[in-house]
């Protein structure tokens, strides 16, 4: 089975995000970069399929030189090879341009199933997996929390508001992974050693023959609106007194209950 896992490098969830003074982006200094948590579920599922059916896992990543670390993390977890698409033309690419580059890289070799995270936790755009499926002309299932493969048949569970859908489709397809799909493994020490020798193919947008044309852009980044300082309720010192004061304030001041 030829399995592809698309990964993105993002700031760690505990990172404070500071907007540049001119609003052109975020300050990258001091940020700890990690594999997008939702992509970890995709890599893990890819490895489990390989363990079950045999085959090869290729990780593909769009981003600058620092993203090699994320590719090596996936290789250390057990992926076999990597493709790094590093091109300044793609550094601020939107979902469409990113998916176009990924599609071109994926198409260069046979594939049966492609994993993406359901969204990256930096731009929160949640589009790349679905666009990739459309560009490749194959079905896509998003937000998978469970996956079963039997021959060419694919069965996935995805939650919607108030229900779980059991969806059937067929290979080849794109699956976007979310929390619940599996528990991603940590890279082992031998895995980390082996990863250093695994092949990573370097590509540019031009080499892939893609235009890297974004269809949207963030014209300006702004900090979140400041919240006015709150009050600590201490009507009297009993929990009951505080609860009564809170109810009164929510009713009369905030008017939300």
């Amino acid at each position: 089975m030829n399995i592809v896992a698309c990964v993105k490098q993002v700031p760690d969830t505990e990172a404070q995000i500071k907007v540049k003074a001119d609003g052109s982006g975020i300050e990258e200094g001091g940020i700890k970069w990690v594999m997008n948590p939702y992509d970890e579920y995709g890599v893990e599922e890819a490895l489990r399929l390989k363990e079950k059916f045999g085959g090869e896992v290729t990780v593909v990543c769009v981003g600058p030189a620092r993203t090699m670390e994320t590719i090596r993390t996936a290789l250390a977890m057990g992926a076999d090879k990597g493709i790094q698409i590093d091109d300044p033309a793609l550094y601020n690419a939107d979902a469409y341009a990113t998916a176009t580059a990924l599609a071109a890289a994926v198409k260069s070799a046979p594939y049966d199933i492609i994993f993406c995270g359901q969204r990256a936790i930096d731009d929160d755009s949640g589009q790349v997996g679905s666009i990739l499926a459309e560009l490749l002309g194959i079905p896509g299932v998003t937000f998978a929390t469970k996956l079963e493969i039997d021959g060419q048949k694919v069965k996935a569970v995805r939650p919607i508001e108030g229900a779980q859908l059991v969806i059937e489709t067929s290979l080849p397809c794109v699956i976007t992974a979310t929390k619940g799909l599996n528990e991603p493994r940590y890279a082992s020490l031998p895995g980390i050693m082996k990863a250093k020798k695994k092949p990573v193919d370097m590509k540019t947008a031009a080499a892939l023959g893609v235009a890297a044309e974004s269809k949207s852009k963030v014209a300006k980044f702004t900090p979140p609106p400041a919240r006015p300082p709150g009050k600590i309720i201490c009507a009297d010192d009993t929990p009951e007194g505080k609860a009564a004061e809170l109810a009164k304030l929510l009713r009369e001041e905030a008017k939300v209950i």
Binding site: I17, I121, S216, V218, A219, P224
Partner: peptide, 14 residues
Amino acid sequence: MYAGKCFGEVVVTG
């Protein structure tokens, strides 16, 4: 963006 750690003003050219 970043789950609300900052905001973006987005224009769509497509």
